[in-house]
C-alpha cells in the first residue's frame, strides 16, 4: 500500500468576489516528486497556490496533507504542517538583511542546530547569498531575490514546496541556473515540489509529472515526457513566440512600508 500523497487536492473552487478563479481542480503530489502546473496568464495558477497555502479560503473542495484535511486552515498552521509557499514576484522582506530573511524562513522551527545546518545547506546551493548575507534584501538583483525567496522557503524544511513562477522576469541563462538548482534540491535533498510555471519547456525539463491549467480547470495531466511530446502542448506552450515576450511582463503592485 503506497503512502498517502503529500498533497491531495479535490474539486477545489475559489472565488474573488463573484469571479470564479478556480473551477474544480483536483491534483496530487507524492513524496519526492517534482510536479509542475502549467498555464497561461490568468489561468489561476497563483490562486491555486494561495488557496493551498491558506492565504485564500476556497469555497468548495478539500485540501489534504498526508491525509489530514487542512482546507481553510490559517497559513501559519499550513506552514507548520510542512507546506511552504515561495510566492510569485519574490516578495522578500526588503529592509531586512539576506540573513534575517533566511532566518524568517525558519520562523516555525525551534531546533537551533538544525536551523544552522539548513542555513549552511542553503548557502551551499546559493553561494551568492552567503556572500551578500549582510546586504539589505531590497537591494539585491531580481535573480538574487528569487534565490533568496527559494532559500528562505527551504529554511522551513518543507514536506512540500509550492513554487510560483520562479522564472518570472529572469534572463534565459539565469532561468537555466535556477531550474538546475531546483532540480538538484529535489534530487539531492529530497524536497518535494509543486512548480507553477508558464515557461513550459524549462518546467517540463525538470518535472516528473505535469498538469495543464486553463481558465481555472485542469485540462491535461500526464508525465512530463508525454506532455512534452503531446501536440497541444507543443503548439500552445512550447511555441517559440512566448519566450521573447516573457521578460518584461508586468509589474506587480507591492505594498511598501515606510
Amino acid at each position: 500500500m503506497a503512502q498517502k500523497p503529500v498533497l491531495d487536492v479535490k474539486n477545489l473552487e475559489s472565488y474573488y468576489g463573484p469571479i470564479m478563479a478556480i473551477r474544480g481542480v483536483s491534483l496530487e503530489v507524492r513524496k519526492g516528486q517534482l510536479v509542475t502546473v502549467l498555464g497561461a496568464n490568468g489561468a489561476g495558477k497563483t490562486t491555486l497556490l494561495k488557496s493551498i497555502s491558506g492565504v485564500m479560503v476556497p469555497q468548495k473542495g478539500t485540501i489534504k496533507v498526508y491525509g489530514e484535511d487542512l482546507t481553510g486552515a490559517e497559513p501559519d498552521v499550513i506552514v507548520r504542517k510542512g507546506l511552504v509557499h515561495v510566492p510569485e514576484g519574490r516578495e522578500i522582506f526588503p529592509l531586512m538583511t539576506v540573513e534575517e530573511n533566511i532566518a524568517m524562513g525558519a520562523y516555525v522551527r525551534t531546533n537551533k542546530t538544525e536551523i544552522a545546518q539548513d542555513r549552511e545547506m542553503v548557502f551551499s546551493y546559493f553561494p551568492i547569498l552567503a556572500e551578500r548575507r549582510n546586504q539589505q534584501a531590497g537591494t539585491l538583483s531580481g535573480g538574487q531575490q528569487q534565490m533568496l525567496a527559494i532559500g528562505r522557503g527551504l529554511m522551513a524544511k518543507p514536506e512540500l514546496m509550492l513554487l510560483d513562477e520562479p522564472s518570472l522576469g529572469l534572463s534565459p541563462l539565469l532561468v537555466e541556473e535556477i531550474f538546475t538548482i531546483i532540480s538538484r534540491l529535489n534530487k539531492e535533498q529530497g524536497v518535494t515540489m509543486m512548480l507553477v510555471e508558464q515557461n513550459a519547456r524549462v518546467a517540463l525539463s525538470v518535472a516528473d509529472y505535469g498538469y495543464v491549467m486553463e481558465i481555472g480547470r485542469i485540462v491535461m495531466a500526464d508525465t512530463s515526457a508525454n506532455l512534452a511530446a503531446s501536440e497541444d502542448i507543443q503548439e500552445f506552450y512550447l511555441g517559440v513566440k512566448e519566450e521573447t515576450q516573457r521578460d518584461q511582463r508586468r509589474w506587480k503592485k507591492r505594498k511598501t512600508w515606510r
Binding site: S53, P75, R80, Y107, R152, K255, W257
Partner: peptide
Amino acid sequence: TKLGLAMQAASQNQLAAYYMGIP
C-alpha cells in the same frame, strides 16, 4: 529577537510574512 524580527517582517511584507508561517 525572533518575535521582534517577525514584527518587522510582517510590517515590510505582510503577505510574505503569512507565507513564512508568521501568525
